[in-house]
C-alpha cells in the first residue's frame, strides 16, 4: 500500500472554538491508482490533500506512506519527501513570476541532490509538450501552458505521487482537457495521481472517486467508465508533440 490513512482527524482551535474539519478519515491508496477526492467547498477535501501531501499534520490518526509512519519524520525529512516522492499541481499554477519556464521547472531540483538540472527539466517540459517554450517567461504563456509547466515541475524529481488540487479550476475547457489528458497519460505510465476537485466532470477522469462531505467519506466508488481511457482511446487532437 502506498498511502494508508487510519482514522485521521483534523481540528482547528480558533480562540476556544474548536472546528472539526476531518472527522476520522480512513483510506488506502495503491501505487498506480488515479484517485479523485470530490466534495463541495468546505467539505475538508483540501485539508485532507494537505495532510496526505505532507504540508500539514493530522490532529490524530495514523498516516503510513510507503509503510512508514510519518509521525516519525521531522520537518526536514518531510521536506525531503515533498521534494523527492511527491509532486504538486495547484489551481492557480503558482509559477515564479518574471522567471523562465525552464527555471520554474528547475526550482524543485535546486532543493534535491539530483544533478544535471537543465537536462532533467528539459525532458519534463518535453513530456508536457512545451519543449519549445523553455526560455519563455512564465507570464508570456497561456493559462493552459502555465498549468503544463506546473505539471512538468511536479514531474521533474520523478515522484511516485502527483497531487493535483483543482488543476483545471482556472482553465477553459479545452486547456482543462489537455491538462487532464496529460495527468491520465502520467497515470498510464505508472504514476499515482490524486486529484482534488468539486467538479464531477473532472473527477470522472479518475478510476476511483471518493466523495467527502463535512469531514467524512460518504462514498468510495470505482469509476469503470473513466474518461481518461476514453480520451486516450479517442486519441484526441491534443496539441502535444
Amino acid at each position: 500500500m502506498l498511502i494508508e490513512l487510519k482514522n485521521i482527524t483534523k481540528e482547528y482551535d480558533n480562540g476556544g472554538v474548536v472546528t472539526k474539519v476531518l472527522k476520522g478519515i480512513s483510506l488506502s491508496v495503491k501505487e498506480g491508482e488515479f484517485l479523485a477526492i470530490m466534495g463541495p467547498s468546505g467539505s475538508g477535501k483540501s485539508t485532507l490533500m494537505h495532510i496526505i501531501g505532507f504540508l500539514d499534520r493530522a490532529t490524530s490518526g495514523t498516516y503510513l506512506f510507503d509503510n512508514e509512519d510519518i509521525k516519525d519524520f521531522n520537518d526536514d525529512e518531510l521536506a525531503y519527501i515533498r521534494n523527492e516522492r511527491i509532486g504538486f499541481v495547484f489551481q492557480s499554477f503558482n509559477l515564479l513570476a518574471r522567471t523562465s519556464v525552464l527555471d520554474n521547472v528547475i526550482l524543485p531540483l535546486t532543493y534535491s541532490k539530483k544533478k544535471d538540472h537543465i537536462n532533467l527539466a528539459t525532458k519534463a517540459l518535453e513530456a508536457v509538450g512545451l519543449g519549445n517554450r523553455l526560455s519563455f517567461l512564465s507570464n508570456q504563456i497561456s493559462g493552459g501552458q502555465k498549468q503544463r509547466v506546473a505539471i512538468a515541475r511536479a514531474l521533474v524529481c520523478d515522484p511516485k505521487v502527483i497531487f493535483a488540487d483543482e488543476p483545471t479550476g482556472n482553465l477553459d475547457s479545452k486547456s482543462g482537457n489537455t491538462v487532464m489528458y496529460i495527468l491520465g497519460r502520467l497515470n498510464n505510465e505508472g504514476r499515482t495521481i490524486i486529484l482534488v476537485t468539486h467538479d464531477r466532470n473532472v473527477a470522472e477522469h479518475a478510476n476511483r472517486i471518493i466523495t467527502i462531505k463535512d469531514g467524512e467519506i460518504i462514498s468510495d466508488e470505482h469509476n469503470l467508465n473513466s474518461r481518461k481511457s476514453q480520451m486516450i482511446e479517442d486519441d484526441q487532437d491534443i496539441e502535444l508533440k
Binding site: 520537518d75 521536506a79 525531503y80 495547484f90 503558482n94 524543485p108 532543493y111
Partner: peptide, 15 residues
C-alpha cells in the same frame, strides 16, 4: 506565496 510554494516543492526551513 512563493515561500509556501517553495516549501511545497521541498525547500527546507534552512533553504
Amino acid at each position: 506565496g512563493e515561500i509556501g510554494l517553495k516549501k511545497a516543492l521541498g525547500a527546507r526551513n534552512k533553504d
